[in-house]
């Protein structure tokens, strides 16, 4: 089973105007314009579902304020041992 991607993207098809700039800008090329049309008559961008690194570049390429939301995977929670180690280090500094 492939590992889960580091990031993911959601696209609000109410806002997307299908300009394609995000598709162009995406480094891992994990976005495309969908074949179907929105009620406005444009092909909206969509996430291919894998390979997103959560870099956020598509967000800044997109001219619509809220069309794209970018997520990044949370780091795994730290174990209590790691936390106390870090606390000790901080105390000695």
């Amino acid at each position: 089973m492939p590992s889960e991607p580091r990031g993911k993207v959601t696209i609000n098809s109410n806002e997307c105007k299908g300009c394609g700039l995000c598709v162009d800008a995406c480094p891992p090329k994990c976005l495309e314009l969908a074949p179907e049309l929105t009620p406005y008559g444009v092909h909206p961008a969509r996430y291919l579902g894998s390979a997103c690194t959560g870099c956020g570049i598509c967000f800044y390429a997109c001219p619509e304020p809220g069309a794209i939301t970018v997520y990044r995977m949370m780091p795994p929670p730290k174990s209590p041992a790691t936390l106390s180690q870090e606390a000790n280090r901080a105390a000695t500094l």
């Binding site: 609000n12 105007k17 990044r72």
Partner: peptide, 30 residues
Amino acid sequence: YRVIEAKSSVFFDRYERKPELQQQTHYCPG
């Protein structure tokens, strides 16, 4: 997953001053 890039809270949620299509801007694609 946590959100790292999303619509700024400085924008209105819905553009109610806009006469129609209040969920998107009036600017052309691109």
